[in-house]
Design a protein around this nucleic acid. Structure first.
Lengths: 134, 134
DNA sequence: TTCGCTGCAAAAGTTTTGCATGCAG
DNA sequence: CTGCATGCAAAACTTTTGCAGCGAA
């Protein structure tokens, strides 16, 4: 386990992620910080985003035909407490699906395949209600 | 509507996609062709994969933490012989879960949240049977 | 013969890494 | 003080594009 220093840069990055809960790219983070007069190195942003993703605090994914990665802050709650994530790959909105709804499915997967689903890491992709109606 | 010339290169690429229906990267296609003694230019592979994707004959997505795109041949009829992915985050093995097993779950999500799950993009993370036993 | 297609190489775009310096603990 | 974190630039990768020449229709 790495030692986590509390640095100004990490706090700034987290603040940007918290204020932009829908899909931001690494370059977005850099640009947003730069426009606030705060300069954080490109490598630091990429390194911290990766660290956050590996810790399960941020979700990394792609949208549309772009080859760039989008990042979404999942909040402090470690995720394994009661819900699956539903991510709209049109608008990037994240919804929560109560675990009880998915319980039977997880059970089927376990019984059929012996696969134990980790709900803190699983994200369902698709279209949210609003985007499906358009 | 572009004119589609029937070239040897396109036939070779399609053949590779057909024989490897799951998770092939562009580089995989190039390497596989090269190992068969067939050389097809990198640009041609990328161009044709993109064309196929735009035509709906191939699905493009990302898996795991990789930054590379995976391509999946959907066959001539875009049937719903889709499947969910079960990715073991211990050994990295990828398993397939038939869509029918997950159908009731997808239905619940749709009825409760109006969310339409795209099975081609959803990956369940967790432990596969082998890793769960250790 | 005519264009579209191919292949090479270069460019473009995104992410990672090496290394010297800075700063939190 | 110690050593992890940062920042810069370069490297590493993946994908796209320009252009000359080839080849399918």
């Amino acid at each position: 386990m790495p030692v986590h220093h509390n640095t100004k840069q990490k706090a700034l990055i987290l603040e940007v992620l918290d204020k932009n809960r829908n899909h931001v790219t690494a370059e977005d983070v850099i640009t947003l910080l730069h426009s606030c007069g705060e300069k954080v190195g490109r490598a630091t942003v990429y390194r911290y985003l990766r660290e956050l993703e590996e810790a399960g605090r941020v979700r990394k994914y792609t949208l549309g035909e772009k080859n760039t990665a989008y990042y979404q802050y999942m909040g402090e709650e470690d995720g394994c407490h009661g819900h699956y994530h539903l991510m709209c790959d049109v608008c990037g909105k994240l919804e929560h699906l109560d675990r009880t709804v998915a319980e039977s499915f997880a059970k089927s997967a376990r019984e059929s395949y012996g696969f134990i689903i980790d709900c803190s890491k699983t994200v369902f992709y698709g279209k949210c209600k609003d985007c499906a109606e358009n």
